[in-house]
Amino acid sequence: MQKEARSEKLRENGVRRLFLARISYRSAARVCGRGLTLFSLGFWLLASFCLHAEIIDRIMAVVEGRIVTLSDIRQEREIRARLGQKLIDDKALIQDLIENYLIESQIADFPGVEVSDSEIEAELRKLQQPSALPSPAMREVIRKRIQMAKYFDVRFRQFLRASDEEIRKYYDEVFVPEAKARGLNPIPPLEQVADVIPKNVIEEKLDHEVKIWLEAIRRRSDIEIFE
């Protein structure tokens, strides 16, 4: 009985405390709200009198003496969007631009990798939306991409071959699981896909070679990224 009375008393105290807390909270909120208002007003007034400078462009990275600016990144993002490519964040975009610059400097020392206007036109026809006109920047990007592809062909691809063992391995470890995952039934035999798999194997090898080659170039290049 005493225990119950005590509990009841505690409950009553608790409620009272809660009620008091609520009252305090409301008062506090009222006080706080006014304070916040005054603060915001003051801050706005102060800021309004200050020059709030905006960075409209800056150096994001320097690659072997070539600068990558914020405007370069914006332009690259825009071009990728127009080309229908997957959008990536700025950090990844900087890395891509850095790699492009490094590859371009390698191509500059490698004669005989030229791109004609007709090749650029052909590529644009594949990609362009009918109503949009390609900007000079877009054409330049296309030209560089074609040139890069040609360079890799000459520098790496022509030396790459897919051995029978590699074809068989690709078929077993990549093609068959992928086919099963897609629900292909029956799974085409190796002979049926023999003309496609070698190309994939060579593409993988090419990616691997280019990756190692780029890593080596990065390691000996002066690259500075400004956060």
Partner: peptide, 20 residues
């Protein structure tokens, strides 16, 4: 951008930003 490039080409500056 061309202005940033010109200033960078002086060889004096490691970083340049343009505030507006």
């Amino acid at each position: 951008r061309a202005s940033i490039q010109t200033l960078y080409n002086t060889g004096k500056y490691s970083y340049i930003e343009v505030d507006a």
